[in-house]
């Protein structure tokens, strides 16, 4: 069974890159471009994703809000969240981890690094 990943990113080319990086390993990636669509998607699928990759600064709702909503869910299986952003001073990174982010990658990302972290998190959470 392929893992379902939700990618929340308002940049134009990043989704293509992520799809490329995670392609070989047979992931099913769904892509939305802002916080509003992200919440919509999560509600519609009843949080039916195995992993979420999100940017921080986006219209409607930022990555932290999505993160806190996902992590504060009482029922359902926990979903790992990776933040990938070009914004990120020390305070923001700390804030991200405080909210329960599983990883924080700064843009530009290293393809191998992203792949390994995705794999590892999926394994951890699926055990």
């Amino acid at each position: 069974m392929s893992s379902k990943i939700l990618l929340i990113e308002d940049d134009e080319v990043m989704p293509k890159i992520v799809e490329r990086i995670l392609h070989k390993e047979e992931y099913k990636i769904e892509h939305v471009t802002n916080g509003k669509e992200a919440f919509q998607k999560l509600e519609d699928t009843d949080y039916g994703f195995d992993l979420i990759i999100t940017d921080i600064m986006m219209p409607y709702a930022n990555g932290f809000e999505i993160l806190s909503r996902v992590k504060n869910r009482k029922e359902g299986k926990p979903i790992p969240v990776i933040i990938v952003s070009n914004a990120g001073n020390e305070d923001m990174i700390l804030e991200g981890f405080k909210l329960g982010a599983d990883d924080f990658l700064k843009k530009p990302v290293i393809p191998g690094e992203l792949l390994i972290r995705v794999k590892r998190l999926l394994m951890q959470y699926n055990r």
Binding site: M57, Y60, N62, N89, D91
Partner: peptide, 11 residues
């Protein structure tokens, strides 16, 4: 308020 909170700026 939500729209103010999502402005692009670090601090």
């Amino acid at each position: 308020v939500r729209s103010l909170l999502t402005l692009n700026y670090p601090t």
